[in-house]
C-alpha cells in the first residue's frame, strides 16, 4: 500500500483517525503519470474510512469521496489549510462518477460508513459534503432519513472546494457544470491508446505475415516491404480514431461519433494515398480506405464511453446502424486487400 500521505493520527471520541498530508510527494506525481497510461490503474486505491486534514473538531466539515487514489490526491490537495474530515467510500478504486453510475459510490455504502464509523459522535453537526457527480448513486433524501445527515452537493471539481466554502457552501453554475475541454480530452488519450495495446501488435503482425502472399506463392521480401507499410497504415487508422478524433471532437462535423471517426479516417487515408502508402493498384487503395475508415469509425464510437455528454439511448441508436456498417466495410476492405495481393506481381 502507498501510505506516505499519512502523517500521523488524531484521537477522537470514536477512536483514532489517521491524519493525511495535503501535499503531493514525488511518488504521487510519478504515479499520477503512470495511472494516466493505464498501468496498474485498476489497483490504485486508498483504504476506505475516515481521515483527518489538519486539526478538525466536532464542527468541521466532512468531505465524502471515493477510494481511487488519483481522486483522493486531488481532494486532499484541495483541502490544504482547511481543518476537515475526509470520508472515503469503498468504490473499489473507481472514480466518483463511474462508481456512482455502478452504485458503489451510493446511498447504501454512504449510510453504512456513516453508521459504522459513529460519525454522529465525531461531529455534532449533521452535514456531509458529497461531490455533485456522486449524485448519480446517492439519494440525498434517503441518506437524511436513515442517518440524520443532510447531503450537501459540492462542486464537480475538487479544485473548486475552497471557493465553494467561501461561497457559503453554494456551488455556482460553473462549479456544477461538466465541460469536456480539449486538455481534458487529451489527458484521456494515453489511456485510450493503452487499452488497445495487444491489438496494436497483433493485427499489424498478421498483416505483415499476409503481405508475403502473391500469385506465385509466398515471398518474405514482399512480407517485409509491404508488411511494414501495412502496419504503418493500421497505426494511422488507430491514431485517427483514438487520438485525433477525441482531440478535435467538437470541431469535426456530425454528431455521431461513428461519422466523426469515419471522416477523420478517410482524411488520413487520403493523406496516405497522396504519400503513395496505399499500394499501386486501385483495389488495394480502395481496400485501405475501407479498412482505415471502418477501424477509425469503430474506435471513435468507443470513445463515447469516455465522454461526459453521451447518453445510453443515443449511443444505442448510433450503434444500431454504425456497428454493422463498420464491420461490413472493414471486412470488405480485408477481402479486397487479400485479393489485391494476387493481382499485383
Amino acid at each position: 500500500m502507498h501510505s506516505d500521505y499519512i502523517t500521523g493520527s488524531l484521537s477522537t471520541t470514536a477512536g483514532n483517525v489517521p491524519r493525511i498530508s495535503t501535499a503531493w510527494s514525488v511518488n504521487d506525481i510519478l504515479n499520477t503519470v503512470r495511472i494516466r497510461w493505464a498501468i496498474g490503474r485498476m489497483n490504485y486505491k486508498v483504504e476506505p474510512g475516515l481521515y483527518a486534514v489538519g486539526n478538525p473538531d466536532n464542527d468541521s466539515e466532512v468531505f465524502v469521496t471515493c477510494n481511487f487514489k488519483l481522486t483522493f490526491d486531488h481532494v486532499r490537495k484541495a483541502l490544504s489549510g482547511m481543518n476537515s474530515w475526509v470520508l472515503i467510500l469503498n468504490t473499489k478504486g473507481i472514480n466518483v462518477w463511474c462508481a456512482a453510475g455502478k452504485g458503489t459510490f451510493g446511498t447504501k455504502e454512504l449510510i453504512s460508513r456513516v453508521t459504522k464509523l459513529d460519525l454522529s459522535k465525531i461531529v455534532t453537526h449533521r452535514r456531509l459534503i458529497v461531490p455533485q457527480l456522486g449524485a448519480t448513486g446517492v439519494s440525498a433524501h434517503e441518506v437524511k432519513e436513515q442517518t440524520g445527515f443532510r447531503v450537501i452537493y459540492g462542486p464537480v471539481r475538487a479544485a473548486d472546494i475552497s471557493e465553494f466554502m467561501h461561497n457559503g457552501m453554494k456551488a455556482t453554475r460553473e462549479m456544477r457544470s461538466v465541460e469536456f475541454p480539449v486538455w481534458e480530452r487529451m489527458k484521456l488519450i494515453p489511456v485510450e491508446l493503452s487499452y488497445g495495446r495487444y491489438y496494436l501488435f497483433l493485427v499489424p503482425a498478421l498483416f505483415i505475415l499476409l503481405s508475403g502472399l502473391n500469385r506465385h506463392g509466398y515471398s518474405l521480401d514482399l512480407a517485409f516491404a509491404n508488411g511494414l507499410r501495412s502496419a504503418f497504415n493500421l497505426l494511422v487508422a488507430y491514431l485517427a480514431g483514438l487520438a485525433v478524433t477525441p482531440m478535435l471532437l467538437p470541431w469535426i462535423p456530425f454528431r455521431r461519433f461513428a461519422l466523426k471517426g469515419l471522416l477523420v479516417g478517410w482524411v488520413a487515408a487520403l493523406a496516405l494515398y497522396l504519400l503513395h502508402m496505399t499500394g499501386s493498384g486501385w483495389v488495394e487503395t480502395v481496400s485501405w480506405f475501407l479498412m482505415i475508415g471502418g477501424l477509425s469509425s469503430f474506435l471513435a464510437m468507443n470513445f463515447t464511453g469516455s465522454t461526459t455528454f453521451t447518453s445510453l439511448s443515443g449511443v444505442q441508436k448510433e450503434m444500431k446502424t454504425a456497428l454493422p456498417v463498420q464491420i461490413a466495410i472493414a471486412a470488405l476492405g480485408v477481402v479486397l486487400w487479400v485479393i489485391s495481393k494476387f493481382l499485383s506481381v
Binding site: G101, M301, N302, T304, G305, T307, L312, V315, Q316, M319
Partner: peptide, 12 residues
C-alpha cells in the same frame, strides 16, 4: 429516466 452508461464498449 432510464439511466446507464453511454458507452459503445459497454453496450457491446
Amino acid at each position: 429516466v432510464r439511466s446507464g452508461v453511454g458507452c459503445a464498449a459497454g453496450i457491446i
